[in-house]
Simulated assay, not measured.
Amino acid sequence: MSVVMRSLRSRAAVAGGCVAALGLGFALAAGSPASAAAQTDPNGRYTAEEIHHFLEGFYGNHGPRAWEREHLVSDQLKEQAAQTPDFDLLLCAQNQPRDIEVGEVTTAQSARVGWATITTRWGQAPKTRTFTAYVDLDGSRPLQLLKVDCEPGD
Protein backbone atom coordinates (compact mmCIF):
# COMPACT_ATOMS: atom_id res chain seq x y z
CA MET A 1 0.00 0.00 0.00
CA SER A 2 1.39 3.35 -0.94
CA VAL A 3 2.19 6.00 1.62
CA VAL A 4 -0.53 8.23 0.14
CA MET A 5 -3.16 5.49 0.39
CA ARG A 6 -2.11 4.63 3.96
CA SER A 7 -2.35 8.32 4.88
CA LEU A 8 -5.80 8.61 3.30
CA ARG A 9 -6.93 5.41 5.00
CA SER A 10 -5.62 6.64 8.34
CA ARG A 11 -7.37 9.99 7.96
CA ALA A 12 -10.60 8.26 6.92
CA ALA A 13 -10.39 5.93 9.93
CA VAL A 14 -9.86 8.86 12.29
CA ALA A 15 -12.70 10.83 10.72
CA GLY A 16 -14.91 7.75 10.74
CA GLY A 17 -14.05 7.14 14.38
CA CYS A 18 -15.01 10.70 15.26
CA VAL A 19 -18.30 10.36 13.38
CA ALA A 20 -18.95 6.97 15.01
CA ALA A 21 -18.14 8.34 18.45
CA LEU A 22 -20.39 11.34 17.84
CA GLY A 23 -23.19 9.09 16.62
CA LEU A 24 -22.78 6.77 19.60
CA GLY A 25 -22.72 9.78 21.89
CA PHE A 26 -26.07 10.91 20.51
CA ALA A 27 -27.45 7.39 20.89
CA LEU A 28 -26.25 7.28 24.50
CA ALA A 29 -27.62 10.74 25.22
CA ALA A 30 -30.97 9.96 23.65
CA GLY A 31 -31.24 6.73 25.62
CA SER A 32 -33.34 5.31 22.82
CA PRO A 33 -32.72 1.73 21.72
CA ALA A 34 -34.29 2.58 18.37
CA SER A 35 -31.68 5.24 17.64
CA ALA A 36 -28.87 2.78 18.42
CA ALA A 37 -30.49 0.13 16.22
CA ALA A 38 -31.18 2.31 13.17
CA GLN A 39 -28.57 0.61 10.98
CA THR A 40 -28.86 -2.97 12.26
CA ASP A 41 -30.00 -6.03 10.34
CA PRO A 42 -33.72 -6.97 10.26
CA ASN A 43 -33.26 -9.12 13.41
CA GLY A 44 -32.01 -6.19 15.47
CA ARG A 45 -28.33 -7.15 15.41
CA TYR A 46 -25.34 -5.12 14.34
CA THR A 47 -23.83 -6.14 11.01
CA ALA A 48 -20.24 -7.14 10.32
CA GLU A 49 -19.76 -3.83 8.49
CA GLU A 50 -20.99 -1.82 11.48
CA ILE A 51 -18.74 -3.75 13.85
CA HIS A 52 -15.73 -3.24 11.57
CA HIS A 53 -16.44 0.49 11.45
CA PHE A 54 -16.82 0.58 15.26
CA LEU A 55 -13.53 -1.26 15.84
CA GLU A 56 -11.66 0.99 13.40
CA GLY A 57 -12.98 4.03 15.23
CA PHE A 58 -12.34 2.50 18.64
CA TYR A 59 -8.73 1.51 17.99
CA GLY A 60 -7.82 4.32 15.59
CA ASN A 61 -4.17 4.32 14.49
CA HIS A 62 -2.51 3.98 17.90
CA GLY A 63 -5.12 2.63 20.31
CA PRO A 64 -8.25 3.78 22.13
CA ARG A 65 -8.25 7.17 23.80
CA ALA A 66 -9.61 7.82 27.30
CA TRP A 67 -13.11 8.59 25.95
CA GLU A 68 -13.39 5.26 24.10
CA ARG A 69 -12.04 3.42 27.15
CA GLU A 70 -14.64 5.06 29.38
CA HIS A 71 -17.73 4.94 27.14
CA LEU A 72 -17.25 2.09 24.64
CA VAL A 73 -16.01 -0.76 26.85
CA SER A 74 -18.23 -3.12 28.87
CA ASP A 75 -18.09 -2.79 32.65
CA GLN A 76 -16.76 -6.35 32.96
CA LEU A 77 -13.88 -5.64 30.57
CA LYS A 78 -13.11 -2.37 32.39
CA GLU A 79 -12.81 -4.36 35.63
CA GLN A 80 -10.49 -6.90 33.99
CA ALA A 81 -8.34 -4.11 32.52
CA ALA A 82 -8.08 -2.44 35.93
CA GLN A 83 -6.54 -5.66 37.29
CA THR A 84 -3.59 -5.35 34.88
CA PRO A 85 -2.12 -1.89 35.62
CA ASP A 86 1.22 -2.65 33.92
CA PHE A 87 -0.42 -4.15 30.82
CA ASP A 88 -2.92 -2.51 28.48
CA LEU A 89 -5.48 -5.29 28.13
CA LEU A 90 -7.35 -3.45 25.35
CA LEU A 91 -4.18 -3.46 23.21
CA CYS A 92 -2.62 -6.65 24.60
CA ALA A 93 0.58 -4.66 25.09
CA GLN A 94 2.56 -2.49 27.47
CA ASN A 95 2.85 0.53 25.20
CA GLN A 96 1.36 2.21 22.14
CA PRO A 97 1.71 0.55 18.71
CA ARG A 98 2.93 2.37 15.61
CA ASP A 99 -0.14 1.27 13.63
CA ILE A 100 -3.31 -0.78 14.09
CA GLU A 101 -5.33 -2.66 11.48
CA VAL A 102 -8.75 -4.26 11.96
CA GLY A 103 -9.25 -7.52 10.10
CA GLU A 104 -12.40 -9.06 8.67
CA VAL A 105 -15.31 -9.30 11.10
CA THR A 106 -17.04 -12.59 11.82
CA THR A 107 -20.46 -12.69 13.44
CA ALA A 108 -22.02 -15.58 15.34
CA GLN A 109 -25.72 -14.75 15.35
CA SER A 110 -26.60 -17.54 17.81
CA ALA A 111 -23.96 -16.33 20.27
CA ARG A 112 -24.93 -12.68 19.60
CA VAL A 113 -21.29 -11.67 19.27
CA GLY A 114 -18.99 -10.45 16.51
CA TRP A 115 -15.20 -10.42 16.45
CA ALA A 116 -12.20 -9.40 14.42
CA THR A 117 -8.47 -9.96 14.52
CA ILE A 118 -6.65 -6.78 15.42
CA THR A 119 -3.08 -6.46 14.12
CA THR A 120 -0.68 -4.07 15.79
CA ARG A 121 2.64 -2.97 14.29
CA TRP A 122 5.60 -1.91 16.40
CA GLY A 123 8.70 0.18 15.70
CA GLN A 124 10.41 0.38 12.34
CA ALA A 125 10.79 -3.38 11.91
CA PRO A 126 7.88 -5.36 10.48
CA LYS A 127 7.12 -6.76 13.95
CA THR A 128 3.39 -7.44 14.41
CA ARG A 129 1.15 -8.81 17.13
CA THR A 130 -2.44 -10.02 16.77
CA PHE A 131 -5.32 -10.38 19.18
CA THR A 132 -9.08 -10.77 18.92
CA ALA A 133 -11.64 -8.13 19.92
CA TYR A 134 -15.26 -9.12 20.62
CA VAL A 135 -18.35 -6.90 20.30
CA ASP A 136 -21.99 -7.50 21.32
CA LEU A 137 -24.39 -7.79 18.34
CA ASP A 138 -27.47 -6.58 20.26
CA GLY A 139 -28.65 -3.59 18.25
CA SER A 140 -30.90 -2.37 21.06
CA ARG A 141 -27.77 -1.17 22.91
CA PRO A 142 -24.89 1.03 21.75
CA LEU A 143 -21.88 -0.87 20.42
CA GLN A 144 -19.21 -1.67 22.97
CA LEU A 145 -16.13 -3.82 23.32
CA LEU A 146 -17.01 -6.91 25.37
CA LYS A 147 -13.82 -8.93 25.49
CA VAL A 148 -10.24 -8.98 24.23
CA ASP A 149 -8.41 -12.27 23.75
CA CYS A 150 -4.66 -11.64 23.77
CA GLU A 151 -3.76 -15.20 22.73
CA PRO A 152 -3.12 -15.33 18.98
CA GLY A 153 -5.49 -17.62 17.09
CA ASP A 154 -4.37 -20.45 14.85
Rank of each mutant, 00 (worst) to 15 (best):
141 R>D: 00
43 N>W: 06
126 P>I: 05
38 A>H: 03
137 L>D: 00
91 L>A: 08
23 G>K: 10
38 A>S: 03
53 H>V: 05
154 D>T: 06
3 V>C: 03
36 A>I: 03
75 D>V: 04
35 S>Y: 13
135 V>P: 01
27 A>P: 07
142 P>M: 00
148 V>R: 00
15 A>P: 05
80 Q>G: 02
46 Y>P: 01
7 S>V: 09
5 M>S: 11
121 R>W: 02
115 W>A: 14
127 K>S: 09
80 Q>M: 10
95 N>W: 13
105 V>Q: 07
150 C>Q: 03
4 V>Y: 10
122 W>Q: 02
90 L>T: 12
147 K>F: 14
111 A>V: 05
97 P>M: 08
6 R>T: 12
74 S>T: 04
131 F>Q: 02
8 L>N: 11
107 T>Y: 05
32 S>Y: 02
75 D>Y: 02
107 T>N: 07
114 G>A: 08
96 Q>I: 13
28 L>K: 09
147 K>V: 13
28 L>R: 15
28 L>N: 12
27 A>E: 14
86 D>G: 13
99 D>E: 12
19 V>G: 09
4 V>K: 10
66 A>R: 10
145 L>V: 11
55 L>D: 00
8 L>W: 14
84 T>S: 12
47 T>E: 00
148 V>A: 02
36 A>G: 04
21 A>M: 11
93 A>L: 13
8 L>D: 12
47 T>D: 00
40 T>R: 02
54 F>R: 03
59 Y>G: 03
21 A>N: 10
9 R>W: 10
140 S>D: 01
62 H>W: 12
67 W>C: 07
32 S>C: 10
8 L>P: 07
81 A>C: 05
89 L>N: 12
145 L>F: 06
98 R>T: 13
113 V>M: 09
86 D>T: 15
71 H>C: 09
54 F>M: 06
108 A>Y: 11
98 R>C: 08
124 Q>A: 08
76 Q>C: 10
132 T>H: 07
90 L>V: 14
143 L>W: 00
142 P>C: 01
53 H>C: 04
22 L>R: 11
91 L>N: 10
33 P>W: 01
37 A>V: 01
147 K>G: 11
77 L>N: 02
123 G>E: 05
122 W>M: 01
83 Q>C: 02
14 V>H: 08
151 E>L: 14
42 P>Y: 06
115 W>I: 08
68 E>W: 11
6 R>C: 05
107 T>E: 06
139 G>K: 00
63 G>A: 08
6 R>L: 08
50 E>P: 00
147 K>H: 15
144 Q>D: 03
78 K>L: 15
113 V>T: 09
12 A>P: 05
84 T>E: 13
93 A>I: 12
65 R>C: 04
94 Q>A: 14
1 M>I: 02
10 S>A: 15
141 R>T: 00
112 R>T: 15
88 D>W: 06
39 Q>T: 09
49 E>Y: 03
52 H>E: 11
153 G>Y: 02
78 K>H: 15
139 G>N: 00
59 Y>C: 03
126 P>D: 14
67 W>L: 13
80 Q>A: 12
136 D>P: 01
142 P>G: 01
27 A>Y: 05
22 L>Y: 14
70 E>M: 12
67 W>Y: 12
94 Q>E: 15
31 G>L: 08
115 W>K: 14
97 P>T: 08
90 L>Q: 09
16 G>M: 08
102 V>K: 07
3 V>R: 09
83 Q>W: 03
91 L>F: 10
